[in-house]
């Protein structure tokens, strides 16, 4: 049986139903599998919000702290602490953050970088 003969069995409404089914699949993917995607970043310095930015384009933010400048690099969908004057460099070595709720904390310089978004892994962090 040729492909054409199989296609002959499909009626116009069937195509609509199949497309609607695929639409449901796509909706389900968007709704259920995008939970970890971040939509913005919050930079705090000395416990206060220094900047709230979106993750749509590349940019560099320099945040002053007691030890000096912490340089934060933002790219579409991810962000990192590129340089920090702290002695142990934990926040720099965390690398790129790309999930909602991810946090990099440069404690010596009192700077933190948080990714925000729906479906974040944590509601709040206390330190």
């Amino acid at each position: 049986m040729t492909l054409g003969a199989w296609l002959h069995l499909i009626r116009p409404g069937d195509v609509l139903v199949a497309l609607a089914g695929l639409g449901v699949c796509a909706q389900a993917v968007l709704l259920l599998w995008q939970g970890g995607a971040p939509d913005g970043v919050v930079v705090r310095a000395g416990g206060k919000v220094f900047a709230e930015l979106d993750l749509s384009r590349r940019r560099i933010v320099e945040v002053p702290g007691p030890l000096g400048l912490t340089r934060i690099e933002i790219e579409p969908g991810r962000a990192r602490v590129a340089a920090d004057p702290g002695p142990r460099q934990y926040c720099v070595r965390q690398g790129w953050l790309s999930r909602a709720g991810a946090v990099a904390i440069c404690a010596p310089n009192q700077v933190s970088l948080t990714l925000t978004g729906r479906g974040a892994d944590y509601d709040a962090l206390n330190y």
Partner: peptide, 18 residues
Amino acid sequence: HLPRRWFGPVSHSILAAF
């Protein structure tokens, strides 16, 4: 009860599967 001209067993099958 959908119009037979437009909706055949393929429609029935997909709807039932959902």
